[in-house]
Design a protein around this nucleic acid. Structure first.
Lengths: 214, 214
DNA sequence: ACCTGAACACCGTTCAAGT
DNA sequence: ACCTGAACACCGTTCAAGT
């Protein structure tokens, strides 16, 4: 079934092509899968095949936890930040290894077991970090949105940022100063990681509940 | 041609269906568009049809700053934050009004003029806010990723967060505590807006260049 | 259990022909 | 300038038949 992952080299695939790659007639395919959507789901599961286990409980032997650090400025990056960073990077890399496949996967978002398992880990880390339960789902949704959006950015890195279409000096200068291609997408993702993880610090319970935005 | 936008009510469309909606034969369609992809692009342009102009230069006469509002410390949210917030909300709402259409639009990201114009505005606001030119493109990419990802979240708000698949108490509790449907997606987006705008404050030039993340 | 050929309904698209 | 019918190559899928 891994022969299907090879077909993402061209951005789309056809039942006939898969059959040809397996040296078989198209109708034979239906002895193993229920349809094309089934193949897409199989590819999704294949992409999220578990990597090495992340240290999910990041408070093993580290009491350098800030006891009274209500300050926003100098909170040291402790275990939960590294764990979360690792999880989010892995999440995005799962897409990033097969950029052409991403649009097909986002066509209909399904709760594949592997994906949910990843969210289990993220929820555990966030809870350990002190994110209040009422905000947990929203925080996870923000993380999810950022990761998915970043993954889509990998699929077409330079399309939107064509300087020929820019009309404003600020945008033209930005495009000139920024990089190109995959490297730019990777760098932006790391910046976003810093932004999101930094902001998360301000949401932690010991710092007190934030003013709700309504 | 607006009859095509009606076809997003079912999540997909066919040349034949469009023809039927226009009381015409399928082959007639090709007198007005070059193909199906052309129709998708027309829908994209239609969605981003310009709304009321945003106050792009946001430092006019506004000292009615809400004191002690969201954000990390006590940096007062000045004009550029409101302007950026408006732009990003509009960007996401453009998608949000047609959730079924989003997967089709993300299938191939194209630089529609209206979209680029929106980035022109965002770049101008960010520059006015003091984001250094070297970081501008990365910051915009982060914003873009978040907005696109949030838009996709609108399309299927509760798919991933099905409690039946969760295995961890933290995630189960989070799902129980969080809301459902479009309201939850909207709330998460507003939270992400707070997070991103708050973090942007730390990147402004007067605060000095941040430690680069490599 | 798996493969095969033939057939199905349905696509998007082209084009010569009409008006 | 626009519509039409017929035809094209190509889909995904089904199924009776083979082994």
């Amino acid at each position: 079934m891994a022969a299907l992952a090879l077909v993402d080299a061209q951005g789309e695939f056809t039942i006939g092509e898969v059959a040809a790659a397996l040296a078989v007639r198209p109708s034979s395919i239906y002895n193993h899968v229920t349809g094309k959507a089934d193949i897409v789901e199989a590819m999704r599961a294949l992409i999220f095949a578990a990597g090495p286990p992340v240290a999910v409980s990041p408070r093993s032997t580290d009491p350098p936890v800030p006891p009274g650090a209500a300050g926003t400025a100098d909170t040291p990056p402790d275990g939960w930040q590294d764990a979360l960073r690792t999880l989010l990077r892995r999440y995005r890399d799962a897409f990033g290894r097969h950029p052409k496949l991403i649009p097909m996967l986002t066509a209909h978002t399904v709760s594949s077991p592997d994906v949910v398992h990843m969210y289990d880990d993220i929820a555990t880390v966030l809870t350990a970090a002190g994110i209040p339960a009422e905000q947990l789902l929203d925080v996870m949704t923000v993380l999810d949105s950022f990761v998915i959006g970043s993954a889509l950015g990998i699929a077409a890195p330079d399309q939107i940022w064509d300087p020929a279409h820019a009309r404003t000096p600020a945008l033209i200068a930005a495009i000139a100063a920024g990089g190109r291609g995959r490297a730019r997408a990777d760098r932006a993702f790391e910046l976003g990681l810093d932004v999101v993880l930094g902001a998360l610090t301000g949401l932690r319970i010991p710092a007190g509940p934030p003013a709700h935005s309504r």
